[in-house]
Simulated scan of single mutants.
Amino acid sequence: MIDAIDFKQSIMNRQLPEGLALHLQALWYDGTGDWKTAHDLIDQLTDKAAAHVHAYLHRKEGDLWNADYWYNRAGQPSTQVSLEEEWENLVVLYSQ
């Protein structure tokens, strides 16, 4: 496991930590500004955590209809927090 502080530091250092679950890898790439790689990593996964990250990515993209679809698949309500806060919450949630 990795804590949120080390996770953010790895983004600043541009060094993807070894052994990260795909959910966190997607968030890591998104944190570096590489939305496409983040989406490609999460797109084919079917678990609720992947759907949650997928929802965030589509919300960030501005595709709110698609984001709502993925929030529903994740069993999560749509959120009104900032994108930065949602990203942070997802990192904390899925790094535990």
Rank of each mutant, 00 (worst) to 15 (best):
H52L: 03
H54S: 14
K48R: 09
Q76K: 09
S82H: 09
T37G: 04
W28Y: 01
Q9P: 00
R73M: 13
W65I: 11
P77W: 08
P17F: 06
E86M: 08
F7R: 00
V91G: 12
V81K: 15
H58P: 09
Q15K: 08
I11C: 04
V81Q: 15
Q96M: 06
D30Q: 00
L64V: 02
R73T: 08
I5C: 01
Q44E: 13
G62M: 04
Y69E: 13
L93T: 15
E84N: 06
Q76D: 10
W87D: 07
Y69A: 07
P77Q: 10
L83G: 14
I42R: 00
E61H: 06
P77I: 10
Q80I: 13
T46L: 07
G33D: 06
A26F: 11
D30N: 00
Q96W: 11
L64S: 05
N13W: 12
D43I: 01
H52G: 07
H52C: 06
E85L: 04
Q9F: 03
A4D: 14
W70P: 01
H54M: 13
E88S: 05
R73S: 06
L41P: 00
L90V: 11
H23K: 03
R59A: 03
L57W: 14
D3H: 05
W28V: 04
I5T: 13
M1S: 12
I42G: 00
Q96D: 15
Q76C: 10
L90W: 09
Q80P: 03
D47I: 11
V92N: 15
L45C: 07
H52A: 11
Q9I: 12
I2P: 05
T37C: 07
I5V: 11
G19S: 12
T79H: 06
T37F: 03
G31M: 04
L22T: 09
T37E: 14
Y56T: 11
D43R: 01
A67W: 02
S78T: 13
V91M: 10
L16A: 05
A4V: 15
W87T: 03
E86V: 02
K36G: 04
G75T: 12
S78H: 08
W70C: 02
L64C: 00
K60S: 11
G19Y: 03
D3L: 06
L93N: 12
P17D: 10
M12H: 09
G31D: 01
E86N: 10
A50C: 08
A51D: 14
L22Q: 10
E61F: 04
D3R: 07
G31W: 00
D6S: 03
L41Q: 01
N72T: 12
G75A: 04
W65G: 01
A74K: 09
D40L: 06
D63I: 04
A38N: 06
V53F: 08
A50N: 02
D40T: 14
A4G: 05
Y56R: 07
A38W: 04
V81R: 15
V91Y: 15
L22F: 00
A51S: 14
W35F: 07
Q80S: 15
